[in-house]
Structure formats: structure tokens, C-alpha cells
Design a protein around this nucleic acid. Structure first.
Lengths: 159, 159
DNA sequence: CACAATTAAATTGTACGCAAGTGAATTTTG
DNA sequence: CAAAATTCACTTGCGTACAATTTAATTGTG
């Protein structure tokens, strides 16, 4: 016999509308961000997920694939081909770790390192596009990270 | 001679960290939502974007592809194959409009209509996973819609 | 009414995102 | 130390996303 954990109550029609859904607000805003970044990132030849990988490397230096995945919440099925493209662009190197040959260490090439100079331009442009105060942005960011934490832990509990 | 619209100022290192980026908070939360929905939607045989299309149809009834795209901010390149899969699942019909044969009208089959009954269960489960107060959720949603509006309008201005 | 411009949907090609499976290297265990 | 379990990255297959192109239908214009 198992406890009934989730009692389904009647939700008012109004609350079921697409525009009322937080999940959709997040989904659509994510796409809006990607589109806002595109013209800027096109100029440096990066996609948005590739830019995120570069951010991690600029911040933390050389890292194994696994750590990059932990930072971005992406698995190797996504990262392997993405990193291969960054390598072909000449921005990163991938070298198998001699101490643990299961791991591949990703590091910046001089060109990848040099691209860090573009970062201020990119962030300023996006900041302007967002059109929020710095305080609003910080507030939203922190709420989203909390939300993400909750959603992440959710799956573990009840099948 | 053209005006320098965006003066790039020095951004402190701390602000450049991945975890400080609002764009990443949105990006990662969107993925977290998709993952949270997956086990629930698997039971009814929908992907998350397919669920969003069903939400629109449950709310608004039969619609041309273009209108669905406007609601979800998706283009026909995304929707055409997605709708084809929903049709193969027997949840929707696609019929070319007799009055304007360029348009394809999407409508729910009885099975698609019946699935609306699952909506309360799905939303309740996600609401629990999110673990926020209703007020927090509403607040975040509204901030995100404002942000999305700003980002959407951004591209139009300055090439 | 013919013909250009526009519109709607589908298609093609590229790049994620993730589940599932593979293979090689390391760690754990008996 | 050998066998089993685990870990890491890669690959495969499917489903989005989106730019760019194509095709068909409609609208606008002379």
C-alpha cells in the first residue's frame, strides 16, 4: 500500500492558459536570449551553447569534458560533437589525460584565449537588449537558480 | 559617420562568471523544466514542445499553423514536423483551409480532446516539483515575459 | 485580367539536447 | 591480483530550433 502523495485538485481554466505557465515563460525567454545573442555571436563565429563553453573555459581554465558538463548541465552526447566543432574552429584543444586516459582535457588555444577580449562587448550588448536594471537581473537570476535546484531534485523522489 | 551607440565599459571579472549570467540561468532552467516534465509526459506520449502545442489547442480550439507559431514563438520549420508527429499519434488533424488553401488548420481529434483531462494531473505535479509559492511563480513569470519583450524588440533597432 | 509581390507551409541543412548503447580505462572487491 | 562494477567519452537515433530555400496560393497593381 502506498501513500497518495499528489492530490490533484481542480485548477481554474484561467490558470491553464499558456501565458500563465511559468514553464512557457522560461522556455520562450530562453529562445529569445538565443536569438538576441545570435547576431553578436555570428560576428565571432560561435553558437550560443559554444559561447557558454567558452565562458566556462575563460573562467576556469583547462577542464575535463565531465566538469564542463557539470557546469552547464549538459551530457557528453551534447558536448562531444560541440567540442569537436570548437576544435575545428581552432578555439580549443582536446588532449587525453595521461594520468587517467578515460578523460579528455579541454583547453583554450591562443586564438580561443584571445577571444576573451570580446566578452565585454558581448555582455554589454546583451545587457542593453535585456533592458532591465542590474538589480532586477540579479533578482531574477537568483530566483531561477533556486527554481532550477527544486526542479533538479524533483525527479529523484517519486519515480 | 555613425553614432557610437554602445560604449563598452570594463566589466568586473566577478560579473563575467557563468553563474552570474541571467541568460544561463534562463537556459539551464528551461532544460530543468523539460527534464522535470519528461517522466510525466512520457506517460501520455508527448514531448514537452508537443505538450505546449496541445495547451494552445486546448485553450483556443482549431487554429492555422501560423497562429500556433505566433503563440509559441516557433516557425514552420519547427512546427511542420512536430505537427506531423502529433498527427501520427492520432491527437490532431491537419486540414487544408478551403477558403485559403495556403493555410493548414490544425484541430484536435476526440483522443486529443480527451487528453485535456490529464492537464490537472500534469500541472499539479510540476507545480509541486517547482516548489515555489504561487505568488513567486506569478512574479517570475511576469518578469520573464517583460524580459522576453525587451529581447524580442532588441534586434530591430541596431543591426 | 496578367503579372509582380506577398504569404503560408513544407523542406533542407546545421546544430543542439538527451536517452541508450559501446568500448576503453580505472576502481572496487573478493 | 583477477573478475566485476564503475567511470568517461564517444556514437547513434530521435526530436526539436532555426536559417534559407521551395512550392503553391492569394493579394496588389496597372
Amino acid at each position: 500500500m502506498r501513500a497518495q502523495t499528489t492530490k490533484t485538485m481542480e485548477i481554474p481554466q484561467e490558470e491553464k492558459r499558456l501565458e500563465k505557465q511559468l514553464c512557457f515563460a522560461v522556455y520562450a525567454t530562453a529562445h529569445a536570449f538565443t536569438r538576441a545573442y545570435k547576431p553578436i555571436l555570428d560576428r565571432v563565429g560561435l553558437t550560443y551553447p559554444q559561447y557558454l563553453v567558452m565562458l566556462v573555459l575563460w573562467e576556469r581554465g583547462e577542464l575535463p569534458v565531465k566538469t564542463i558538463g557539470e557546469q552547464l548541465d549538459l551530457d557528453s552526447g551534447t558536448l562531444s560533437p560541440l567540442l569537436k566543432r570548437l576544435e575545428q574552429s581552432g578555439l580549443i584543444k582536446r588532449i587525453r589525460d595521461l594520468r587517467d586516459e578515460r578523460q579528455v582535457i579541454v583547453s583554450l588555444t591562443p586564438r580561443g584565449e584571445a577571444m576573451k577580449g570580446e566578452i565585454d562587448t558581448i555582455m554589454t550588448a546583451i545587457g542593453q537588449a535585456a533592458g532591465c536594471t542590474l538589480q532586477e537581473m540579479a533578482e531574477m537570476r537568483d530566483m531561477l537558480h533556486r527554481l532550477r535546484g527544486n526542479l533538479g531534485r524533483a525527479g529523484t523522489g517519486g519515480g
